[in-house]
Amino acid sequence: MTELRQSVLKTPAPKKLRNVKEVPFVELYGGRVQGVVRSGSDEDRVYVCFVEAGTGNHACNTNNNRPCSQNYFCKHRLGMLSEAMEHYGAERVARYLNAPGEYTSELSSSELFARFPNAQIFRGSAPNVFSRFLSYLRYVELQASLDPMPEMSWFIAG
């Protein structure tokens, strides 16, 4: 039979359940791996981190835009990146960051960071990561419908 184009393609599914308590939010978005990390000391505070694709430039600030006291490769940045690698798979994260070198599933977050020796710390506010996190949290409170959803035929986790 003639090969026809396929309309249903699998949606990449999380590889593993990440540690939601430590890192409640992580995503590949707008050319950055970004996320939110719990503060060990204050329940109302979170750290907002990102690593930029291509350059490896990175940042870590509190949700009130105070820079993280540790300057470089803090546990928040590394933790966020590790959980992103759990969630999406190390290879996909490395590819998304356009990191130099080979991509394997055994890659660790500190090894991945080290692939960007010229990376700079990004000063100033982390662009919209925290508001993305708040939008993300909205989803767990939304009301779904009991109606048939034929359009969901297009979305299969794989």
Binding site: Y139, V140, A144
Partner: peptide, 11 residues
């Protein structure tokens, strides 16, 4: 059909 809004860690 049962449906729910969710986030990516819920699977």
């Amino acid at each position: 059909t049962l449906s729910t809004w969710k986030v990516d860690v819920v699977f």
